[in-house]
């Protein structure tokens, strides 16, 4: 589904990603962990098409398409979704109107008819129940004055509405208490299927107690330095990232 080959990216001349290789297949959940500044969020941003970053080398294919050639909206149309670490507050635009526009624009991209009011409402009701989100929240301006937990739940709700093939969750757990993490993780788990995949970007192992990954990758200094099964997270939790750093230094 997603195939990243030797990806290099920089921002303002500063090299952040230095040769990432990663394969994700349908049905898989991958986690990317790593210390601050290792390039985790950069990877998520580059995949979603944030224009601040320049890809200097390498390739990314997504379901056979050259992802890097696509605009952010085209990537969403192809089925990629990024749950933001810091969801943006948009005054004057209700979440409902926003998500309705998004759903129909994505449908248009895929050559499908726009949903009529009844069909949209039905879909929304269903996904609201699934992600445990309240109608009053959706009538308000997008993320405006939402708590941290509400913003993240709104991200998961949007994900449910858009039904992506690949969901990238960028530090969705950051700043959330354990109850909020549980709610968010629950939502994500309900959306997992054999056809779609999830890429979790996280600093801590805690989220992985609730969303169990198939593979864990450790990102350090712009490269994946270690990959392994879910037990790797426990090791990281116990020993911290220092042993990775030391190992990396020794190898270098």
């Amino acid at each position: 589904m997603l195939s990243i080959h030797n990806l290099h990216a920089s921002i303002d001349e500063k090299r952040i990603l230095k040769g990432i290789n990663l394969e994700i297949k349908p049905g898989e959940v991958h986690a990317i962990m790593g210390p601050n500044g290792s390039g985790k969020s950069t990877l998520a941003s580059v995949l979603a098409g944030r224009e601040d970053y320049t890809v200097t080398d390498g390739s990314v294919t997504f379901n056979g398409k050259d992802l890097l050639e696509l605009s952010p909206e085209e990537r969403a149309g192809e089925g990629l979704f990024l749950a933001f670490q810091y969801p943006v507050e948009i005054p004057g635009l209700s979440t409902t109107n926003f998500i309705k526009t998004a759903v129909n624009e994505v449908r248009k991209y895929r050559g499908e008819e726009a949903l009529d009011a009844v069909a949209f409402l039905k879909l929304m009701k269903e996904k609201m129940a699934m992600t445990n989100i309240d109608q009053t929240l959706l009538s308000r301006s997008l993320n405006e004055g939402f708590s941290g937990g509400e913003k993240k739940r709104n991200e998961v709700f949007q994900m449910a509405m858009l039904q992506p093939k690949l969901a990238i969750l960028d530090e969705t757990d950051s700043g959330l208490d354990i109850d909020a993490i549980r709610i968010v993780a629950n939502g994500v788990n309900k959306l997992r299927s054999k056809d779609n995949a999830v890429l979790l970007v996280t600093h801590y192992q805690r989220l992985l107690d609730y969303i169990v990954p198939d593979v864990i990758h450790v990102l350090y200094n712009g490269q994946i330095v270690k990959s392994g099964p879910k037990e790797l997270a426990l090791e990281l939790e116990e020993r911290g990232y220092d042993f990775i750093k030391e190992q990396f230094k020794a190898e270098a």
Partner: peptide, 10 residues
């Protein structure tokens, strides 16, 4: 970028 990442054209 936030809106575009949800499939909404520029």
């Amino acid at each position: 970028f936030y809106l575009r990442s949800r499939g909404i054209t520029e």
